[in-house]
Design a binder for these strands. Structure first.
Length: 437
RNA sequence: GUGGUCAUAGCUCAGUUGGCAGAGCAUCGGAUUGUGGUUCCGAGUGUCGUGGGUUCGAGCCCCACUCUCCACCCCA
């Protein structure tokens, strides 16, 4: 017998983990619903032609390919597992555009797969919770997503910092320092600023072929300090006269203004080092980091002006963010922030002494369930010790013991497992006691 | 994809220069036939990740593979 196993980077979820995960998903779902977003799902697998070339060279390598069956088994795979929820969503919009009312507000909570090498907070199968608004340029959409971030993390009790940037500002910087074609190199290098330090960033920029005087011009921008307003003023000055960059500053200013109008209390920070790898972002970029756990970003997203263009529907602007459920799980676990009620645990267990008692208990259980009480009946009249141990190990707070005496008087012996107290009660009394506990 | 690291009972882990495969927890039974969580007694459990090699003899040494975790790349 070889030991059973699961593929690298995948996980089983037991009852406790599922209760926790469902708590996260339902919290997120409830917030999304409050903003009028509607849920969709797309297939786990997409055609390779849909997936290829959408995530850059690196992304193509990380796609899981599905081998063809039958006669085509040896030909190139025509299907692959989805890598994220955004590209399948873009395909969905193009395919169903005639059925949709724009601006279209959708959310989607499904697993995605990446053939990455696993490590902490990084899996080959993980869930994303995407929420997007498609078909409007309005920055109110950005504001709403920021409000959603605020609501979700407030509900979960996680302290976070929202990092904000704008791709147009980054493009403007690249133009101003005289290296407009190097925007990707510049952003991926300065993204690492707080990780590897200024000196190494400059070294990397040089290695990526950036001219020395361009690097020199970049220094004041990398060194920006102060409040969000001060930083924004400073960058506006640097970018004055540059059309793209100024547009980005205007967008950022407007978003901050809208946040004030909604009395947003979220902790946010203008972060020019925030780049985000995906190259389809064109405007605002978001990233959320947990303040009390070091795990990378737990939510990320941004605006993309022409995502559906690659599928033949140009000029449709959208903005969206993705909550990383698996990382949020790790954060909540590390900070021990799950509410006790999340388990939906059994409220009362029936323990019986014989077959007649078992049947009696089943009748009672049915009535309690009608009252929306979570009930278990121990399925056989085993030794009382065994039935009690079962209740104890599952932390069931109440045990209703049924023997001959109880049946005769139409009662059960109700034991409170935390205090050890017990008393003989009728069904009405039982229902009242359970609702009190 | 590059570099490192780990794997022994259901779980967490000991295991000496290479010489009989171990402990705690959990499980099951009993002390206690109508009462759990505390206590005491007893019991079972292993292709030592997989395959090969060295050796009289390998959990231990060598090689390959798989898996875990970590760093890089990239990312949620």
């Amino acid at each position: 017998m070889t030991k059973p196993n699961i593929p690298k980077g995948t996980r089983d979820f037991g009852p406790l983990e599922m209760a926790r995960r469902n708590y996260i998903f339902s919290t997120i779902r409830n917030v999304f619903a409050r903003y009028g977003f509607q849920q969709i799902e797309t297939p786990s697998m997409e055609l390779m032609s849909t997936l290829m070339g959408k995530y850059g060279e690196e992304g193509d390598k990380l796609l899981f390919r599905i081998q063809n069956s039958g006669e085509k088994a040896n030909e190139a795979p025509e299907k692959g597992l989805r890598y994220d929820l955004t590209v399948p969503f873009a395909r969905y919009i193009v395919q169903h555009r005639d059925e949709l009312q724009f601006p279209f507000r959708r959310f989607q909570i499904q697993p995605v797969w990446r053939a990455d090498r696993p490590q902490k907070g990084r899996y080959r199968e993980f869930y994303q919770c995407d929420v997007d608004v498609i078909g409007t340029d309005s920055l109110v959409s950005e504001l709403e997503l920021i409000q959603i971030v605020e609501d979700v993390y407030q509900a979960l009790g996680i302290r976070v910092c929202l990092h904000l940037n704008n791709r147009k500002i980054l493009a403007g910087i690249a133009e101003v320092i005289g290296a407009p074609d190097k925007i990707i190199d510049i952003t991926t290098a300065i993204d690492k600023l707080d990780k590897i330090g200024l000196e190494n960033v400059n070294k990397e920029l040089s290695e990526r072929g950036l001219a020395d005087d361009s690097i020199a011009k970049l220094q004041p921008i990398l060194a920006l300090q102060g409040s969000n307003e001060e930083k924004l003023d400073a960058i506006a000055e640097v970018l004055a006269g540059n059309e793209t960059g100024t547009k980005g500053v205007e967008e950022m200013t407007q978003i901050i203004d809208l946040m004030k109008c909604q009395l947003s209390t979220i902790n946010y920070q203008l972060d020019l080092t925030l780049a985000r790898g995906l190259n389809y972002y064109t405007g605002t970029i978001f990233e959320v980091k947990a303040l009390d756990v070091q795990i990378g970003s737990i939510t990320g997203g941004g605006r993309y002006d022409n995502l559906t263009g690659i599928f033949g529907l140009p000029n449709v602007s959208g903005v969206g963010i993705s909550f990383g459920a698996d990382r949020i799980y790790d954060v909540l676990t590390e900070l021990n922030l799950y509410p006790a009620s999340m388990m939906n645990a059994t409220q009362v267990l029936f323990a019986t002494f014989g077959d007649a008692e078992l049947r009696y208990a089943l009748k009672w259980a049915k009535q309690l369930r009608k009252e929306n009480i979570r009930v278990e009946v121990y399925p056989e009249p085993a030794k009382m010790k065994k039935q009690m141990s079962y209740a104890d190990s599952k932390a069931i707070p109440l045990v209703a013991i049924v023997g001959g005496n109880e049946m005769e008087s139409d009662t059960v012996m109700l034991k409170n497992m935390t205090t050890g107290e017990q008393s003989q009660v009728t069904i009405e009394q039982l229902i009242n006691k359970i609702k009190k506990v």
